[in-house]
Design a protein around this nucleic acid. Structure first.
Length: 139
DNA sequence: GCCAACGTTGGC
DNA sequence: GCCAACGTTGGC
């Protein structure tokens, strides 16, 4: 099972809204970046992801599960863009801030640190485990 | 509100 | 196919 990170501005689409969708989940639509799209194409149903609030919050606030593999983005009419569906799994008990991630040398290679602008990112297994530990998530 | 980093676009 | 110009993102 692969692990990922999904970034969003809470003013646009927040963890609260994501949770309000319940088990029905939500298309992760609107992504218009090839790298991010290709990551979504590589995802499989059942993969896990961190849900990260950018902007003024800058912290990982929740855990999501990929509930549907990549399919055409319903907000795109050109056929170029795909997206997956996400279901909220759990709150991060103690949200993990960007500062905390940057402060830990073991996380220095995280994409979040090195390419903050990429909105859908792969997360290595060791990084996943450590961030979950930092956040008190034992899932 | 500024600016650095990065991706995309378009002219050549 | 290269590269300059531009727009956007996101951290500070």
């Amino acid at each position: 099972m692969a692990c990922w990170l999904f970034k969003t501005e809470p003013e646009g689409w927040s963890w609260e809204k994501q949770k309000s969708k319940g088990k029905a989940g939500q298309e992760w639509d609107g992504v218009r970046n090839f790298q991010a799209r290709n990551h979504m194409r590589a995802m499989q149903k059942g993969d896990r992801g961190f849900f990260y609030h950018s902007g003024s919050e800058r912290r990982i606030v929740g855990i999501v599960e990929v509930s549907a593999a990549a399919h055409p983005d319903s907000t795109d009419s050109t056929g170029t863009w795909d997206c997956v569906d996400l279901v909220a799994l759990a709150d991060m008990p103690n949200p993990v801030s960007l500062d905390a991630v940057k402060a830990d040398a073991r996380l220095k290679d995280m994409v979040l640190v090195n390419n903050a602008r990429l909105s859908v990112q792969p997360v290595r297994a060791a990084e996943w485990a450590l961030v979950c530990k930092m956040g008190g998530y034992s899932g």
